[in-house]
């Protein structure tokens, strides 16, 4: 029996889908059986980020409505045999499915996979309720912005109401240079407000935009710093203690040392 993790944020555009794609791919990379579920009915993106859009024939709604079996709707990833995507319907809306149906579907998927990663839509309405129903745990994604943190706080409260306690936090798009200058919230500030377990900090990284547009998750790019951050997140999910990347006090010397390979773990 696997574990179902919902990736949520409240606010849109903070990187839920990117996180889902990277965490899912990262878990598959270390040999886990993973199913990514796009719960963003009507505004699906996970298929595009994974580069699998052109393979979609059936979707989650077809499964729920009984037009096809789960196996028929699942799309095998191009890179990993143990990674699958269950795409959302694009021509439908959130109310095409209800939390009960989603719960059943996720339970069914958990039989066959080590991890079921659910990409939650933005907002706190029906889509959120669908995505969180059936999840065993939650990862809350935020960016170092007051509005995103506020929404993340709201989400943590709503998750508790759904009996999803003790979620993980992923801070996305952190800019160490701005934090150093005091122009951006730092990690401590955010943990202070949200008071939940930190799973990882992903630096702002141009390469992730390139990889997202190409449909190749950054976690596969050995040179990408954000990819490294996601690889660390994946290992932490697996219970390995990985020190956090030293993003916020990254001096030129440390960067240089890491470059020549004596900087230790980042």
């Amino acid at each position: 029996m696997g574990k179902a993790i919902v990736i949520t944020s409240g606010k849109g555009g903070v990187g839920k889908t990117t996180a889902a794609a990277n965490i899912g791919t990262g878990l598959a990379q270390i040999g886990k059986k993973v199913c990514l579920v796009d719960a963003d009915i009507g505004l699906r993106n996970l298929d595009v980020v994974m580069g699998l859009e052109n393979r979609i024939v059936y979707d989650l709604i077809d499964v729920v409505e009984g037009y096809c079996r789960v196996r028929q709707a699942m799309i095998k990833d191009k890179r990993f045999d143990t990674l699958y995507l269950l795409p959302a319907a694009q021509t439908r809306e959130k109310d095409a499915v209800n939390p009960d149906q989603m719960g059943k579907l996720i339970t069914e998927l958990k039989q066959d996979f080590d991890y079921v990663i659910i990409d939650c839509p933005a907002g706190i309405e029906q889509g959120f309720k669908n995505a969180t129903s059936g999840a065993d745990m939650a990862i809350v994604v935020t960016t170092p912005e007051v509005s995103a943190v506020r929404d993340a706080d709201r989400i943590v409260g709503l998750l508790e109401a759904q009996e999803l306690y003790d979620p993980y936090l992923v801070i996305n798009r952190l800019r160490p240079d701005m934090v150093r200058k005091g122009d951006m919230m730092n990690t401590e500030d955010m943990i202070d407000i949200l008071a939940i377990r930190l799973l990882g900090v992903v630096p702002d990284d141009e390469s992730i935009i390139v990889s997202t547009n190409r449909g190749e998750p950054a976690v596969l790019d050995k040179r990408s710093q954000s990819g490294q951050a996601f690889r660390n997140i994946v290992r932490r999910l697996e219970g390995v203690e990985v020190p956090f990347m030293h993003l916020e006090n990254n001096s030129m010397v440390q960067r240089f040392m890491r470059l020549i390979g004596i900087g230790g773990k980042s």
Partner: peptide, 15 residues
């Protein structure tokens, strides 16, 4: 096209 279907035939765009 992302995908083309004619009757029961289906093909997708190359990656």
């Amino acid at each position: 096209p992302t995908q083309l279907r004619i009757a029961n035939y289906i093909s997708r765009s190359p990656d």
